[in-house]
Amino acid sequence: MKRLVPMLAFALSVFAPAVGSAIADDGEQCRDDAILVLDSSGSMAGTDMNSLTPHVAKVREALAAVVPQVAPRRNLGLLVYGPGQDSRCENIDLKLPPAPNSAETILGEVNRVVPFGETPLTAAVRDAAEVLEFREKPSVVVLLTDGEETCGGDPCQLARQLKAEARKLTIHVVGFKVAGAHTWLVPEKRAACMAEETGGLALTAETRDELIEALQKTLGCPLFSDASRMSKPPSSAR
C-alpha cells in the first residue's frame, strides 16, 4: 500500500497536465465562430425504402436536438444552398452570419426551407469561409449534405487553397444518406476530402439518431467532453 500511493501520485503528475491541456485546446476550438452549410437541394425532399419521411424532416429534427445545446457556447451561423427561383448553381443564401444565441433564428430558417435545385457545395463552403473571415481568425465550417457536388466544383482543390491561406480553418463534413454515392464519382471530388485536407471530421449518418451524434461531434465539442469525463473519478471510487 505504501508503494502504491507514490505510484498513483506519479501517474497523476504525468497524465493530469495532458488532460488539462486537451481540455484547454478543445475549449478554445469550441469558441471559434462556426457556420453550418446546409444542403437544401432537391434530393433533400427524397425518402428512402425504410421510411416515407423526407430527408429534410429528419435533418430538422436532428438540428432541433443539437443547435440549442451548442448556440449558447459559440457563435453560429447558417448558409443554405439549393432553393431559388430556378434550379441554378448560384443559389447560395447566407441566412445568418455567426451570432451568439442564434438557435431560434437558425431553426426558424431551417423549418422554412423548401428543398430544390442543385448541389454547389464547394462554392457554398468557400462563401462560408469568407463570411467567417477565416484568414484573420480560427473558423469552423460544418457541411451537412445528402449528396456530392453537382456544379463542377472541386472540393479537394478548394480545401487545399483555403488551408494554404489560413491554417486555422477546419471543415467538417457530415454525409446524410449518401452511402455508396461516391462509387460513381472521381475519388478526389468527394466532399469528405475537404475534411481530410483541413483536419476536420468526415462522418456519415443513416438515421436521425446517427445524424444527431454526428452534429454533436462537429458543431459541439466531444473531445472536450471526453477529457472532462477523464478528469473525474469514477462513481465507484467516490
Rank of each mutant, 00 (worst) to 15 (best):
T183L: 14
N91G: 06
S231G: 07
A99I: 03
P222H: 07
T218K: 07
V125I: 13
L211H: 01
S225T: 13
K137Y: 04
F10M: 14
L162D: 14
S13K: 08
N75W: 00
L121Y: 09
T183M: 12
I171C: 07
K2G: 09
L36W: 08
Q157Y: 08
E133F: 07
G46E: 07
A71N: 00
G199P: 05
I212N: 00
E196S: 02
P155V: 15
E28H: 09
K2P: 11
L38G: 11
E188Q: 04
A57H: 12
P234M: 08
G117E: 08
M230Q: 11
P97Q: 03
M230F: 15
Y81L: 05
V56Y: 06
V5T: 12
K163R: 15
E196V: 07
R73V: 01
P100A: 12
A11D: 00
T119G: 02
L201V: 02
A123P: 06
G220Y: 00
G82H: 06
L63V: 10
S236K: 10
R3P: 10
F134W: 12
P233G: 04
A11P: 01
L223V: 12
F134H: 07
A45D: 09
E90K: 05
L12Q: 06
H172P: 04
V56A: 03
I35E: 06
E104S: 11
T198Y: 01
D146T: 10
R135Y: 05
K168S: 14
L211W: 02
E90A: 15
D48W: 13
V142E: 03
D25G: 04
P17M: 05
M44I: 12
A99M: 14
C89H: 01
A205S: 01
T47A: 13
S87P: 01
R135F: 05
V37K: 08
I106S: 00
M230W: 14
G180I: 12
R190F: 09
F224R: 02
Q161N: 13
L201D: 03
L211Q: 01
A192I: 04
T198L: 00
V110R: 03
E213V: 11
